[in-house]
Design a protein around this nucleic acid. Structure first.
Length: 286
DNA sequence: CTTCTTGTTACTGA
DNA sequence: ATCAGTAACAAGAA
């Protein structure tokens, strides 16, 4: 599940490889993932350049050479962007056995070819991800519904405090709401709440001063750390070079139901909260 | 066979 | 107005 750290990793990798490299071709296998007229999409992108790559929440925003044209890519749950320099790449590494990635594969729905013959593959098992061309005005409209960037300096304690106070809903739903804070998904929401010792069902307006402070610090800390580790390896996430992220080893609560809590040893619980599988320690989190 | 997985939007009902 | 809950999208794992 690409969340902020995964998308940030992909963004940085693509930036290194693809700025000002001419797109010579693009092949589309599954047109429905493109939310723009297909002919326009192809015509616009062929012979174009990526001038700048940004991330907002979980959305990738690529500025094209024209001032008023942007390519948006959302990976949703199972989307991958894989950059491949050669015909065949070996991915994995770390402590795991390597595995071959051959593309295009069964779930490759589109790929770009660049002037240096490198390729960028968009794979998506569940086909919820999309690509879309927009102008500045459309982009502004889309971004206007996004909440604060949790790693930006303007996301500060004071703002978090007032957001929490003005809402009356459980903290898990609050963290997942992209209109309030953009980029946190199910994995990091659970990790942040565990680190902050806050139960996911707590109403935001009941959080004590020190709880808000812990929450604030852990949002920053955990997301930053996850970015450093290139995200979490999990099911369908590999970064733009096909490498897995390292944060999986750092997970303390996500997917650990029925295991003993690392801090106190009690059995980690799992419940459906805010429509999502939610893991928590009933003793450490209050 | 059923149930679960999750990002986002749309919808319903409280 | 706010919020909770659910379905939808789709494919696979258990």
């Amino acid at each position: 599940m690409p969340e902020l750290p995964e998308v940030e990793t992909i963004k940085t990798d693509l930036e290194k490889a693809l700025i000002n490299v001419k797109i010579t071709d693009l092949k589309i296998y599954l047109p429905k993932i493109i939310k723009t007229n297909l002919t326009t999409f192809k015509k616009t992108l062929k012979n174009n350049y990526f001038k700048k790559i940004k991330r907002r929440g979980k959305l990738i925003i690529i500025s094209l050479k024209e001032k008023d044209k942007f390519l948006l890519i959302h990976l949703k749950m199972t989307g991958q962007l894989i950059y491949q320099k050669k015909e065949k790449i070996i991915a994995g590494g770390h402590n795991e056995e390597n595995f071959e990635l051959l593309f295009p594969g069964k779930h490759t729905h589109l790929f770009f070819t660049f002037a240096d013959n490198s390729k960028l593959y968009f794979n998506d098992l569940r086909q919820f991800g999309y690509l879309k061309l927009v102008n500045q005005q459309e982009l502004d409209l889309i971004l206007s519904s996004y909440g604060l960037e949790p790693l930006a300096p303007d996301f500060n304690l004071k703002k978090l405090k007032s957001l929490l106070k003005n809402k009356k809903r459980n903290i898990k739903a609050f963290l997942l709401d992209q209109k309030i804070i953009a980029g946190i998904g199910n994995i990091y929401a659970d990790e942040i709440l565990f680190a902050s010792k806050i139960l996911p069902l707590r109403s935001t307006d009941t959080l004590q001063e020190e709880e808000v402070l812990r929450l604030f610090k852990n949002i920053k800390l955990i997301l930053k750390k996850a970015v450093q580790y290139r995200g979490t390896t999990f099911n369908n996430f590999v970064d733009a070079n096909g490498q897995k992220g390292n944060f999986l080893k750092k997970l303390k609560i996500y997917q650990k139901e029925k295991e003993p809590c690392l801090k106190c040893g009690s059995k980690i619980q799992k419940e459906k909260i805010a429509g999502r599988g939610t893991r928590f320690c009933p003793l450490c989190q209050r």
